[in-house]
Every structure is written in structure tokens, then in C-alpha cells.
Design a protein around this nucleic acid. Structure first.
Length: 226
DNA sequence: GCGACAG
DNA sequence: ATCTTGTCGC
């Protein structure tokens, strides 16, 4: 897969913020993904702070049946400190390497982190979407920005995530009585469609099947590299 | 000044 | 993210 990038390795936080403020104007919030989504790629990373290693994984599944189409892992060095709001610059380099290694271009990317639900409306999911040009969705496990009511306890219930008067995402219950997920638009997809696809990916567990598999792959790759 | 703060 | 005992609920 071809990826044009030159804006993923800033040397200072100030520079990183500048990159986000420049790229955020390229985010497309309309549905520009295929009408029928067939393949979905899950992205995740695992860290080992002691060795300074980071492992990234990209797993492409057929959304209907979850058959594995292909999977790639990359292990490299951590190149940016963790900082809320800038954490994409930590995960982006290895994630893009993993995506570049894919042979098949997926219909949608599922990121482990927020998209628009970010202080500058440009979280990891937006960044990955913009630099790849692919539709992307951000799925967070905890709140980063915004306020919301508690969604109903049944799977599929959702409430809007509001920040500064903007609907920046949705708090979506993916399993009955289980802690909800924070879904936000990354790129080229509407919030409604994003929630619909995430629900399809969560038939039995809280987290999307794509994220679960990517998480496991990244951990295994990291363990293997130690 | 005092919290809050994706992974 | 990762570490990591005990503990609550079904």
C-alpha cells in the first residue's frame, strides 16, 4: 500500500501541534467509504519501555465472518514520548510501516484511540486516515475530551459525546451491561456509519474483533523481539 | 492554582 | 501502555 508521509516525525511538541493544526483541515467527515464494507484493518501497538521497543500490528479481516485476509507486524524503537494529545506521533511511524507492508487495500481502518474526540480535533484515527487516504474510525476505551450522558445498558445504546458545543463522537455500548466505547470519526466516514461498523465488529466482546486481534499480534511480536 | 489527561 | 493481588458476581 502506498502512503505519502512527511509529517509524522516532529522533533518537538510545538512542531507536532503545528502538524496537527495543518493536517486537520484535510479530514473529510462525509461517508466516502464503499457502500459495502468488506475488509477492515485493525491497528494496535504494544510497548516495552525498558528496552525502548514498540511493536505495531495491522490485521485485515473480512467484516463478514472475520476471516483473516492478511496481517503484518513491525518492531522498532520508541521515537516520541507519551503525551496526551500528541500520542499519534509515538504510534504513527510503526503503524504506517505495518500498513505499508499490506498487499491488500482495506475498505476501513479501526484505530485504538480517538479521532475527532481530541483537543484539536485530530486524534490518531484522523491522522492515520489523512496520511493513508483511507476511511478510518477511532475507538477509545476511555474518555479523553468531552462530556456525555450514560448510554442505556443494552448493546447498541449510544449517547453523543459533546465538547465545546461540538458532537465529537459517540459513547457506544457494544455489549449488554459492559463499559461503553468512545467512537469518533477518523476520516471519510460519518459517525452513524462508524458506530454501525463498530457494532458489527463487536458481536461477542466489548472491543472490535480487529482491535482484539491486532492487540494480540502486537504483544506477540514484541515478546518475540525481547 | 488545582485537577484532568487517548495509549 | 504495563504492572499485578485480591475480589466481586454469575
Amino acid at each position: 500500500m502506498d502512503i505519502v508521509t512527511a509529517h509524522d516525525r516532529p522533533s518537538t511538541p510545538q512542531e507536532a501541534i503545528g502538524i496537527q493544526e495543518t493536517l486537520r483541515d484535510l479530514v473529510e467527515l462525509e461517508d466516502r467509504c464503499p457502500q459495502e464494507i468488506v475488509t477492515v484493518t485493525g491497528l494496535d501497538v504494544a510497548y516495552d519501555e525498558d528496552s525502548g521497543l514498540i511493536a505495531a500490528a495491522a490485521v485485515t479481516l473480512e467484516i463478514d465472518g472475520f476471516r483473516v485476509v492478511e496481517k503484518r507486524t513491525v518492531v522498532s524503537r520508541i521515537s516520541f514520548p507519551y503525551e496526551p494529545g500528541l500520542f499519534a506521533f509515538r504510534e504513527l511511524p510503526p503503524l504506517l510501516d505495518a500498513l505499508r507492508a499490506l498487499d491488500h487495500v482495506p475498505d476501513l481502518l479501526i484505530c485504538d484511540g480517538h479521532g475527532l474526540a481530541h483537543p484539536r480535533r485530530f486524534g490518531l484515527a484522523c491522522h492515520v486516515g489523512v496520511v493513508t487516504g483511507l476511511p478510518s474510525v477511532g475507538v477509545g476505551k476511555t474518555r479523553f475530551v468531552g462530556e456525555h450522558d450514560e448510554p442505556g445498558s443494552e448493546r447498541g445504546s449510544r449517547t453523543p459525546l459533546l465538547d465545546d458545543g461540538d458532537v465529537v463522537g459517540a459513547v457506544l455500548r457494544t455489549q449488554d451491561g459492559v463499559k461503553p466505547l468512545y467512537v469518533s470519526v477518523g476520516h471519510k466516514i460519518s459517525l452513524d456509519n462508524a458506530c454501525r461498523q463498530v457494532l458489527r465488529l463487536c458481536p461477542a466482546f466489548r472491543q472490535p474483533e480487529t482491535t482484539r486481534q491486532a492487540d494480540r499480534l502486537a504483544r506477540d511480536a514484541l515478546k518475540e523481539a525481547l
